[in-house]
Write a protein that binds this DNA or RNA. Sequence first.
DNA 1: TTCGTTGCAAACAATTTGCAACCCT
DNA 2: AGGGTTGCAAATTGTTTGCAACGAA
Lengths: 138, 138
Amino acid sequence: MDHNSDTTEATWLASAGLRPTRQRLALAHLLIGDGQHRHVTAESLYEASRDSDEQVSLATVYNTLRVFSDAGLLREITVNGARSYFDTNVTNHPHFFWEDTEELMDAPDEDLKIAQLPKAPAGTEIAKVDVVIRLRRK
Amino acid sequence: MDHNSDTTEATWLASAGLRPTRQRLALAHLLIGDGQHRHVTAESLYEASRDSDEQVSLATVYNTLRVFSDAGLLREITVNGARSYFDTNVTNHPHFFWEDTEELMDAPDEDLKIAQLPKAPAGTEIAKVDVVIRLRRK
DNA sequence: TTCGTTGCAAACAATTTGCAACCCT
DNA sequence: AGGGTTGCAAATTGTTTGCAACGAA
């Protein structure tokens, strides 16, 4: 990773008040290094790190994904009882989930229009709204 | 369980081509016995069965929930990486999920209006659309 | 120096599975 | 009788945690 992108990742961490450790910078680079939004699982990110020049242990990948999403840098998406997915796009937006390959991707945001949403019951507020469109191969 | 409800549950099973075994009838009774829709986890259903006069092993509860939802009698809802929820209401409808108590319940169906939904990519069809409104206690 | 962070291994929790006994049809 | 179903225990899978070594402030 060159110096410029290194700054980008450090800024990303700093914006959430997180220390720029070697491991966090490496994972941040894999997550936002190219400016594209990305959906990862702990396992997929771990493998990406194994293939890179900065290895991170699996436990740290798990811990870091948790820290990042608690800090609001990532959004956790629950589509599958088993695995957790994390999205670098933290805004409310719909997802496609392929049931056969268990792949998660963004659905075109502008194509979902929710005209009316149930109001939150008294004493509560809406933390987020997850819309998952499950796809089956025809 | 009296004879009438016994018939209801047997019919429910028969409609999906499932054999009316003692355990399935007992679980069916706990699920649809009073005609109300219900959201259960394997653990909650197992406990309900422990408290009833027809006990079912935990493994069988797990297997039966899987069999029922594969057969279309239940809908599996994934809200939480850890636990799986099963809903006796198998139609598309929105859910409220309390983040603190991990309780799942129906959101008023008529209050959700999706004006436009992304179309399924070529070669795929929409299996189902999950809308989960996550609530945080204020 | 101080305290947050990492990494390994062990602990955990939810769920599935192998297999022998059992029971619908 | 024959094949689906059950239940126990053991195995799996994804994830978290205890703790000693390490590194950022």
